[in-house]
Design a protein around this nucleic acid. Sequence first.
DNA 1: CGGTATCCCCGTCGATACTG
DNA 2: CAGTATCGACGGGGATACCG
Lengths: 225, 225
Amino acid sequence: MGSGYYQFCPVAKAMELLDERWTLLIVRELVSGSQQFNELRRGLPRMSPSLLSKRLQQLARAGIVERRAEGSDVRYVLTPGGQELRPVVEALGTWGVRWIGELGDEDLDPKLLLWDMHRNIDHAAVPGGRTVVRFSFPDAPAKARDWWIVITADDADVCDVDPGHPVAVTVSASLRRMVEVWRGDSGWSNALRSGEIEVSGPEALRRALPLWFTLSVFASVPRPA
Amino acid sequence: MGSGYYQFCPVAKAMELLDERWTLLIVRELVSGSQQFNELRRGLPRMSPSLLSKRLQQLARAGIVERRAEGSDVRYVLTPGGQELRPVVEALGTWGVRWIGELGDEDLDPKLLLWDMHRNIDHAAVPGGRTVVRFSFPDAPAKARDWWIVITADDADVCDVDPGHPVAVTVSASLRRMVEVWRGDSGWSNALRSGEIEVSGPEALRRALPLWFTLSVFASVPRPA
DNA sequence: CGGTATCCCCGTCGATACTG
DNA sequence: CAGTATCGACGGGGATACCG
């Protein structure tokens, strides 16, 4: 960037750091609980690893992130100053979900959707043992059509190939509708009633499934009239 | 920019618009009450007019700003969606004032300081008629050393040349200290007691002067321990 | 006052490959 | 897993001049 604004205004000073491409999305990921390098990458698929590396260094220099290496285990952790960026991220998301209505087809990344969903599972609501949910997006390109989330008592994994375990429930929907439900643009119940999302499997599980997934934190933001 | 993040996340969608250089500072200016093109420029001295023009068009296209031309009078006004960016600007400023401690000498722009101060005058606290306050920054370059604010009942003007009217009070300080007081990093009383800011003039006015200026909205943000 | 037009430099970012 | 290395294109944006 031109790098500096040459202003003493706190907003300007904050933006000198935060207006660079990707920076605030990295903070979002950290706020969401990601800590490892490749974990961050999964939440930022279009970002090159070198750029992520560079940004993490910048954030560390700025005192927003601390790099903690214990042996070969490396973790990026928000400092107290970094944690206070949470309100910034929340304000941006709240604004975004209200005022950026239109999502392009390019924005509908199933990998990202599943990655988001898997880390917001309400494990207490899911039956014990191992539960496999299959997602099917008939309108997506062949390679991105089928996904599985394998849920256990305290973990969840995303697969883009059949993990082999028996599937408890299958969710079938257009990618767009599924994203809209996740974001809270549209409700589960409407989408189910209209048949735009189909859930198949034993009735008890079918009914329970919407409770397994805690939706995006922005889903509950009221929308403009 | 690479322009898009290709994510449906509301934070990402918001940043697609707002992470471009200068954009959020324009919003800050609009939130602060500026409406005319050259008024905006005064709050963004280092921004080229062409870029400002371009950004305003982008903001208009995004539905954040409305361009209202009545005859030859042109005003840029925040739409309802734009007004809801206020919490974003406030969150950024609140974070910035807490965690970006160090201001470079380059950040200490007296023109910007006076511009900020003049639009935050508590006219009810200032004596009636015309009151002229002179600011003197001995450490600033010759051309930026002396400034005058001419305050009337419902207006205030900044001059960088002596407007000729009798001066009611003169404030003398280092630019840095004055900025720190304005931002709330340092209190009026400390700066006055230590002599780092000197106010000269009739005692009643000298005492009253700190009340004439409402400090930055971020001045009251509590600082980290 | 309210902008456009132009010009060119330099840094950013993206893509990809590769290493310990 | 956790990054570095390299490379090239592109375009953002800074400066300045100018117009109605």
